[in-house]
Amino acid sequence: MATVTIAERNERALAQPRRNVLRAFEESRAYPAALLTPILLFFVLLNVIPTLWLIGFSFYRYSLQSPDIPRPACVSGPCPTLLSIPTGIQVSLTQQLQIIIPAELPIGNYIRIFEDPALWGAFGRTFLFVVLAVVIEVVLGVALGFLFWGSSKMPGRRVALTLLFTPMVITPVASGLFWRLIYEPTFGVLNFLIRTFGGQPIDFLTNNQWAFPAVLFVDIWMWTPFMILMTLAALGSVPKAELEAAEVDRMSWRSKVRYVIWPHGKFILMLGILLRTIDAFKTTDLVFLMTNGGPGNITELVGLQLYRYAFASLNIGFSSALAVVLLIAAIAFTSIYLWVLNARRRVESR
């Protein structure tokens, strides 16, 4: 072996490629499959199975308040208002299968969704909430986004933007609590200001007229910065050369927006509006923490209503049907979102 030259060794290697198990595996079709296995496991375990479960139960009249079921303490006794966590529910799969009663019609639960006035009320309020929140946030966000457009050389810009964008990255639990302290009728700072200017103090979150606008205002405070961010991104997606050309042509402000900014910026703005719509539709934590749907049901949005059907009324069949409806709505929204995203790709790559 001592006199094997490099040339000889190379020849030998070429003649007999080394059989390496790892290499063979990497070249086979098993390699991409292996890379995809973990994500598919997660997806099947935590999305596919629960969704099938949900769809299955949505066809049954299955309520944990039926007899013969080990009940959570909260059902027999009084429930603490905010704390109706179903820790006591211990129903095994076999028990689940024993107690479910097929709905009168297989789609009985879905029909009941349409017949439930409380739910229609919640859908109506959610719709109003989403429309008002998104419209106001978009108008404010676009206006402020244009205002911030020329700020790239501002001293301390990074700190200023951090302050500006903070409301959207803190947990809604915390921001809900912040605003409860600010809205507080006796020592809250807002009522202090109202009193200073000679007004009557208002208990915003328990007042029939004020609770809804008060929650809406917090949502606007949280998410206007997001629309500012999206507006800045939309403006940033306009090619510099076209803006300079518009400058050279002394284009009017209006036609600059119409012919230079809009054709490029509209996509990102649309994506922002869609994301915000989807997110506003999901609002649950915030109302849960601020008003818990009250006073009465004035701030009861769909997300909260669903939570209540499932975990306070323990009406699993019905809430599953409602969840399936919301799932379909989410998929529809996502399709629209991706359609806009692809439209942008097509236009930008032309």
């Binding site: 999305n47 095994s92 989807i278 649950t284 499932a310 799932l327 989410a330």
Partner: peptide
Amino acid sequence: MFLMLSTRMVPASATVVAIFQMYNAFDIG
């Protein structure tokens, strides 16, 4: 990719109903 994105667009209270049912049954099993 589309399905993955849409899972993030579903209201949490809808997902949690399903996960809660499944987790409880698995645990007891």
